[in-house]
């Protein structure tokens, strides 16, 4: 279990790096577009389409695995703190299963849509044609892996709830602010 968790952690960091690359590309492309429009009368072609169809889905979906691995998804804790550790683990197991189910549902539906778009060779025509089907795979890939991580951790949480031993939260979570986090 811990091995799988660690492996998903590493994968999540790679995906996060890819998202960082997309963030920087997006910033540079918009700036070049503005500069080109004014200095050279030559805007970057199809910036609007590339930003919305490629960089935005990348920024939003690729980091999913890394965010969940660091246990940074947002939840409301009202009752949670007052529970004893075993009940808390049971609660967490349920929450993790819900999150995993939700991600798998949207990942599966997104996968169907992505396959359909890929078969049709989906594209959009701005100033130049932009292929738009590959970024449709960001959600299915990241969502499916994150769902898997939720399942792994939910199993760990169930064990804690039943036996009162073990752990399921990322013990590697960086308190020192390591940038690889």
């Amino acid at each position: 279990m811990q091995t799988l968790d660690n492996f998903l952690g590493r994968l999540g960091r790679w995906l996060a790096w890819a998202a960082v690359a997309c963030l920087v590309l997006m910033m540079v492309e918009v700036c070049l577009d503005v500069a080109g429009r004014f200095l050279l009368s030559m805007p970057m072609p199809s910036t609007l389409e590339i930003v919305s169809e490629w960089w935005m889905p990348a920024l939003i979906f690729l980091p999913l695995l890394n965010v969940e691995w660091r246990d940074e998804n947002i939840a409301v804790d009202i009752l949670h703190q007052r529970l004893n550790p075993r009940w808390r683990a049971a609660c967490d197991a349920f929450a993790l299963l819900c999150f995993g189910l939700f991600l798998w549902l949207i990942a599966y539906a997104g996968f169907e849509q992505a396959m359909r778009a890929a078969r049709q060779g989906e594209f959009i025509v701005g100033m130049i044609p932009v292929i738009t089907w590959p970024p449709r795979f960001f959600l299915p890939v990241a969502g499916c892996l994150t769902g898997l991580l939720c399942l792994v951790r939910a199993l760990g949480a169930v064990r804690v709830a039943v036996t009162g031993r073990g752990g399921y939260l990322p013990n590697t979570l960086d308190s020192k602010g390591s940038h690889l986090g």
Partner: peptide, 15 residues
């Protein structure tokens, strides 16, 4: 787009 480009102007796409 084609007409604007052929007229020597710059095409800008905004929402």
């Amino acid at each position: 787009d084609r007409w604007i480009t052929e007229s020597g102007a710059t095409v800008v796409h905004t929402s």
